[in-house]
Amino acid sequence: MPALQRRQNVRFASGDTSCAAWHYPGSNGGCVIMAGGTAVTKEPASDLFAARFNDAGFAVLAFDHRRFGESGGTPRQIVRFDEQVADWHAAIAYAATLPDVDPDRIALWGFSLAGGHIFRVAADHPRLAAAIAQTPLVDGRAVAPHALRAMTPLAMLGLFGRAVADALGGLVGREPLLVPAAGPRGAVASLTTPDAMDGDQALDPEGRYANWDQTVAARIALRLGGYRPGRHAARIRCPLLVIVCDQDQSVLPRPAVRAARNAPRSEVVRLTGRHYAPFLESHEQAVAAQLSFLRKHLASRDFH
């Protein structure tokens, strides 16, 4: 039976709500917990990789952060970094209770913003077996100037005006003011770097995910520049695989390479291509590197 047909809908508690997830039952005791970045929900974020991991015997738990996708939490489409990190902690606790999972053989996988979260979460979980950060956003301060240069002055003014209005409105209980998570240069969108618009082709080329809301509360523009999860790298004790793309214009390769050097047990795999290359032209190379890493660090042993 194909992996996408084996998976099961599950939910786990996080904070005052619950997160929706897919559980792909595994056969070897290892488990990979997966989530995507910014407004990317579990299906477009994980389907391509989750099926390959599951076919190799690993259980997979792919989830939506609260306020996104099928998870609970209101208001919707708001990125709150601490909340999302808490969702990862809750996912780890839940995965450890699954009958097909060895609690000592859990790995994390995230890309883009979630790839940055991996650094924070792994630093706080010494029991983790491994972690994979794919094209991670590790240093908003380093990335922000490049992202701003990719905007037209008018679009920049529009975004930050909307972001301030959104943040102030949130203080008095108004509904979030939404912007596209990605857009072409000149659009009022969260990200307009040259590779920002590769997302549809990479994550949903056939338009399968009709319910995927690709918007985000505009206030993220005020916060992303201060998010620097790569600073936690030195505290990560588990093996860490960092996938970077040399032509990445969205999170840039250099900050991730620099952060990886500070993690005691890190490996870096460099791919040719832009931010979404691991889903596109470099997919097989990315999958091969990640499966090799998982097999090495989630090595099969007797599990009952």
Rank of each mutant, 00 (worst) to 15 (best):
A221K: 02
H232C: 12
D195T: 11
I132Y: 01
R235M: 13
G169C: 09
L203M: 15
D213C: 09
C245V: 06
G170L: 10
H232L: 06
G225C: 12
A129C: 06
H125I: 07
G183Q: 09
A123L: 10
T193Q: 09
A234F: 12
A147P: 00
A233H: 02
D195C: 10
R127S: 15
A133D: 02
Q247C: 11
Q134C: 15
V138C: 07
D248Y: 01
P205F: 12
T215I: 01
G183S: 13
G199T: 08
G207D: 12
G161W: 02
L224A: 11
A163V: 04
L148K: 09
L241M: 10
L137Q: 05
A217W: 01
Y227K: 03
G158P: 01
G169I: 13
T192I: 11
P180I: 10
G161I: 06
R127T: 15
P205M: 09
D198F: 11
A181S: 14
G170M: 11
T192C: 05
L157T: 10
H125Q: 15
P126S: 12
V172W: 09
Q214N: 08
V257R: 02
A189W: 06
P136K: 05
G173N: 04
D213P: 00
P176R: 01
P126Y: 11
A167Y: 00
G199R: 03
Q201C: 04
D166P: 01
L159S: 07
P239V: 09
I220A: 05
V242S: 04
R231T: 11
A150W: 06
A165S: 14
A187T: 08
R235K: 13
L191W: 00
G199F: 08
L224T: 10
L252A: 09
P205Y: 10
L128M: 10
V242W: 02
T135S: 11
G225I: 14
Q134L: 14
V188L: 06
R228N: 14
H232Q: 13
Q201M: 07
P136Y: 10
Y209E: 04
M156L: 13
G186A: 05
R149M: 13
P136E: 08
L154N: 07
L157K: 03
D139K: 00
A142R: 05
V188P: 01
A144M: 15
G226P: 09
D213F: 03
T135I: 15
A181E: 12
A142D: 09
A233V: 05
G173D: 04
R228S: 08
A210W: 05
R228P: 00
M151Q: 11
L177Y: 01
G173H: 07
A234L: 10
V188I: 15
L148A: 12
R162Y: 04
A130E: 08
A210P: 01
P136A: 06
A218N: 08
T192E: 03
A144K: 01
V244S: 06
D139R: 02
D213Q: 13
P145W: 12
H232I: 03
S190I: 06
M197P: 04
D246V: 00
A187D: 11
G186T: 04
P145S: 12
H232R: 14
C245P: 05
T215D: 08
W212P: 02
I220W: 10
D198Y: 08
A217E: 02
G226F: 14
T152R: 03
R228Y: 03
Q247N: 14
S250P: 03
A131D: 00
